[in-house]
Amino acid sequence: MIDLGPHILFILGSYIGAALVVMLLIFGVWAGSNKQKKRLADLEAQGIVRRSQSTES
């Protein structure tokens, strides 16, 4: 690793802070996506599907 000089705390701080926010964002988006997929799967398990997908006539 290169020497980051006297301001190493500020440099690492901004990288770590940015990484934390980005990770939070990724987690939030990922969790939101999963939640909706699960909801749709649950609905499908109950036999509630969209009209275009329903096989019974």
Binding site: V29, Q36, R39, L40, L43, Q46, I48
Partner: peptide, 22 residues
């Protein structure tokens, strides 16, 4: 992230509609 968030928002609306119709 925008694409994934858009996809889950579409799914959310779809699920909402299905629940409402049900």
């Amino acid at each position: 992230l925008h694409m994934v968030a858009m996809r889950s928002e579409i799914l959310r609306r779809r699920a909402n509609n299905l629940e409402r119709r049900h």
